[in-house]
């Protein structure tokens, strides 16, 4: 039996643009890979997500790193991510591996999904190394819906490949494990030479793998191949951490947004009537036109195209990349 603790969820709380979660568990799952279980310190539900979603981990150094959610969405209280130590990186993964411990708090943004699972009769999942993470919940979902699916999973060697036991135990023959030191590179030609309109190919992994899969799928119908680069496009612009100013151009007022308040909260305090609902960046109710400045979009409503236009934002979660934003309020 489950007991509803009835702790308030998002709309009753004053939600900042990010949420502070607690590391509940940290487990090595392969050479150089740890999995983290993140929970709300108050035990409340976490925002809903769909397979392919990622969260932002905002580390004390100010570095933001994106990690795919690879846990179970039927457990609304826990996020699971898996982090590969990348020594060439800017220290984000090293911090997670060396310093972030169970019990510690960490700031989290999102979740957002730019790699959603679309319906199909058959799926071919192709994972390279840590690229297995977004595919794990997709595989579970494909299995739940009774779709026909297979996973082709490559990596340097078995020891470096996360979740092998979990995959073998749950799915057996549907999973083909191809460590490079045993089998060489993935034989993509064998898997992809016959285009199949009923099959969607979902691929996540290092750049060379994606390039090879794209080439092998060149004769496939458009839209059947869907990819995500797990080395998220480098966050060239740092998230603005300090205070910034928001000008309300219709009323002429200017408010300063401090790091502990959302833009929405500050606008309300300044007397602007901004309607909101979920206050989690998922419903779109508080959408506000932007006249000047560059928002730091942190919602899951706007498409990439709409984000790039920078002419509107969701002040419940989004902030500013520029020192000043002018809103049409």
């Amino acid at each position: 039996m489950v007991v509803h603790n009835l702790l308030p969820t998002a709309p009753l709380q004053q939600h900042p643009s990010t949420v502070t979660l607690q590391v509940q568990d940290k487990t090595p799952v392969a050479d150089g890979v740890v999995s983290l279980a993140l929970v709300h310190p108050d035990g409340t539900r976490l925002p809903d997500w769909t397979p392919g979603s990622h969260i932002d981990l905002i580390l004390p150094s100010g570095v933001t790193r994106q990690y795919s959610l690879c846990g179970d969405r039927w457990d609304p209280y826990t996020y699971r991510i898996a982090v590969l130590r990348e020594d060439s990186g800017r220290g984000g993964s090293a911090y997670v591996h060396d310093q972030l411990m169970p019990g510690n708090l960490v700031e989290v943004g999102g979740p957002r999904n730019h790699f959603p699972l679309a319906p199909a009769e058959r799926y071919l999942f192709i994972a390279g190394g840590i690229g297995i993470t977004p595919l794990l919940p997709m595989i579970h979902q494909a299995d739940v819906t009774g779709a026909d699916w297979q996973l082709l999973y490559g990596g340097r060697n078995r020891a470096s490949m996360a979740f092998l036991d979990e995959l073998a135990a749950s799915y057996g023959d549907r999973v083909q494990i191809s460590p490079q030191d045993e089998c060489g590179l993935l034989d993509l030609e064998a898997w992809l030479s016959q285009p199949d309109t009923g099959t969607k190919v979902y691929c996540c992994g290092p750049g060379p793998l994606l390039t090879a899969v794209e080439a092998a799928c060149s004769r496939w119908p458009p839209y059947n191949l869907r990819t995500e680069r797990f080395t998220a496009k480098a966050l060239t612009e740092p998230v603005h951490r300090g205070p910034f100013e928001v000008e309300l151009c219709r009323s002429g007022r200017t408010v300063t947004i401090t790091p502990d308040a959302t833009v929405l909260q500050a606008l309300r305090q300044a007397g602007a009537d901004v309607l909101s609902s979920c206050e989690h960046g998922t419903c779109g109710t508080c959408l506000t036109p932007v006249v000047e400045g560059t928002p730091d979009h942190r919602d899951s409503v706007l498409t990439e195209h709409e984000r790039a236009a920078n002419d509107c934002m969701l002040p419940c979660v989004s902030r500013s990349r520029s020192a000043r934003l002018v809103l049409d309020l």
Binding site: T50, P51, R73, N113, P116, L117, A118, P119, Q141, V144, T145, G284, L287, V301, L302, T303, E306, A309, C312
Partner: peptide, 19 residues
């Protein structure tokens, strides 16, 4: 319910989103 709910919801949400 999820997962069947996901794709129709996502498609309609984008078509009816404020932008």
């Amino acid at each position: 319910d999820p997962p069947h709910h996901d794709a129709p919801r996502r498609v309609l949400r984008e078509i009816l989103a404020p932008p």
